[in-house]
């Protein structure tokens, strides 16, 4: 139930859930759906308390910390079904200062000239991506290749699973292109591999592992990378 215009009185359960792909969708606060109504109520009580205090002292840090703390609480039960017993580990063959570094993010970046066009839809908007989140979660992810000399104006982002406002203002928030170019120039890394890669992390986990990942591994091995930096969102 997400219809704000409904005549029926909205319950607290419906209200908190409406921030997760509902009538009040805001992906920074979609964690509210994972909280009990009692905890969600407590979040809003604490939030309003900090907002009230900020009117006098002007500091927003406590508000940000409160949101952070409740996000941690909201997601604490997520992703626990994919549990493994052992951690794979291979030691790098050389220091990172001599290594060719590959990059792969799940931030949903792509070049303007190579839109993956999910479900065959051209120029899909962020709003449409959020509306189709269930379809993304059943689909096979597409890998976008982004050359490191891309013009900043040609770098696009679209992802129905998280709040893209920050990365829309500055891709370096999740796609560290300029950061790594600088580290390469300073010799902190041996070489930044081109292209960098990105995909929409909200996807079918089975299709990712069985259908997409083997080809991705072959492709990045073909790039000659020594190590891989991964940035999930």
């Amino acid at each position: 139930m997400t219809d704000i215009e409904s005549d029926a009185a909205e319950t607290l359960e419906e209200f908190k859930n409406s921030f997760s792909y509902g009538a009040r969708s805001d992906l920074t606060f979609k964690f509210l759906k994972s909280l009990s109504p009692e905890d969600a109520g407590e979040f809003f009580r604490q939030l309003l308390g900090e907002v009230g205090r900020s009117l006098d002292h002007g500091e927003v840090g406590p508000i940000h910390q409160l949101v952070f703390d409740w996000q941690v609480r909201g997601y604490e039960k997520s992703g626990r079904s994919h549990e493994y017993d052992t951690a794979p580990f291979v030691a790098p063959a050389k220091p990172v200062s001599a290594s060719k570094v590959g990059v792969l993010t799940s931030s949903g970046h792509f070049p303007a000239w190579d839109d993956p066009n999910p479900f065959g839809i051209e120029n899909m908007t962020q709003v449409e991506a959020e509306a189709r989140i269930s379809e993304f979660m059943r689909d096979t992810p597409a890998l976008s290749a982004i050359p490191i000399d891309i013009d900043s104006g040609d770098l696009r982002v679209r992802h129905g699973g998280y709040d893209v406002r920050s990365v829309s203002r500055d891709p370096e928030v999740a796609f560290p292109l300029q950061t790594l170019i600088a580290l390469e120039a300073e010799g902190v890394i041996g070489e930044l591999s081109s292209p960098m890669y990105s995909f929409t992390g909200a996807t079918s986990q089975g299709r990712l592992r069985r259908q997409a990942l083997p080809g991705w591994i072959d492709r990045l091995k073909g790039d000659g990378i020594d190590v891989l930096l991964l940035v999930p969102v």
Partner: peptide, 27 residues
């Protein structure tokens, strides 16, 4: 998603490092 990618690459012989926000440390 990135967890599966990290494990897959590492098992294929490519060392990986991942950057997670605190909310997903448990993942």
């Amino acid at each position: 998603s990135v967890g599966h990618v990290a494990r897959g690459f590492e098992e294929a012989g490519i060392p990986t490092v991942s950057v997670f926000v605190r909310a997903f440390r448990h993942v």
